[in-house]
Design a protein around this nucleic acid. Structure first.
Lengths: 157, 157
DNA sequence: TATTGTTATACTCTATAACTATA
DNA sequence: TATAGTTATAGAGTATAACAATA
């Protein structure tokens, strides 16, 4: 067996991330994950992950919304929404009522228990805003919100 | 028109998403997903998903970087990075060389093939910027980038 | 004793095909 | 024929525990 000498690689002292930081996708993903990380911790008491919360919130503000409408609004695929809705129903937070005009569809509604929980959960979610963007001024927060909406506008993904 | 009968579940004509849209996390996630969706399609020719690209890009600009450094910089857990690095190595894009001072670590480097691919991939990634934020002015893009960095600054997640 | 890299593994998230009942 | 909801399932993504080699 011949002795094979491998070249040694120079070590990196501080990692240069400057190129990645020029990419909008990288920055948007990092920012979203940072905010979601806070959300996960603070909303744990309600047993609501970000998507559960989004679904429940849309039902809150759109009584009688259908699964299909939820899927389109949130970019969730129908098979994956089933699990989410079933979970909320099993916890007694929502109920399914027959749709007034479409016999295939079901209208989703909050129960009294669901309403009580969502009132608290949405209040907490609003409080989290301060924590999520505490490094930004009020004006910067408003600007960031507007620009983010502009980025994903017209998108149904 | 006949008399309207009170339905058990009123239907929703247009979905009201106004509350969710007041939340930074919701907007940030939607924006990030919209950009990533474009990335997935356009970078398919290179066989690089967002995380593969991030790993390969950091190796490009930090020759000799270790797995541990990659994990910290990108918020990836060590066991999950192994699969990513193995994939890049099996494709002949990167190679592992012994670390100059730490016998436990390996320095990661691009191969010639990897360098050729990453030059094209990073060029394409920069072109994607126009597509990702074409609804924003140059000034707005600069502002958005700055504010996003401010949101996730000091975060290692 | 602590750290780097790794294996094994489990759990969540996301995606596709196909079925049912209604339209 | 098309659509709403569902089932089953496969593939990504992400998490923890534990181990070998080295510091």
């Amino acid at each position: 067996m011949a002795t094979k000498r491998l070249p040694r690689s120079p070590s990196v002292d501080t990692v240069d991330t400057s190129f990645l930081e020029t990419l909008m996708g990288y920055n948007a993903r990092r920012a979203a994950l940072a905010i979601i990380a806070i959300f996960l911790v603070r909303m744990k008491e309600f047993g609501l992950r970000p998507v559960d919360f989004s679904v429940a919130s849309l039902i809150t503000h759109n009584p009688g919304i259908t699964s299909r409408q939820l899927c389109i609004a949130l970019g969730i695929l129908p098979p994956n929404l089933v699990t989410l809705v079933n979970g909320l129903e099993k916890r007694g937070l929502i109920s399914r009522l027959p749709h007034p005009t479409d016999g295939r569809a079901m209208g989703l509604h909050l129960t009294e228990q669901g309403l009580t929980l969502m009132r608290e959960a949405e209040k907490k979610a609003m409080e989290l805003e301060k924590e999520s963007s505490h490094r930004l001024t009020a004006m910067e927060q408003k600007t960031l919100m507007r620009l983010l909406k502009k980025v994903y506008a017209q998108d149904a993904s």
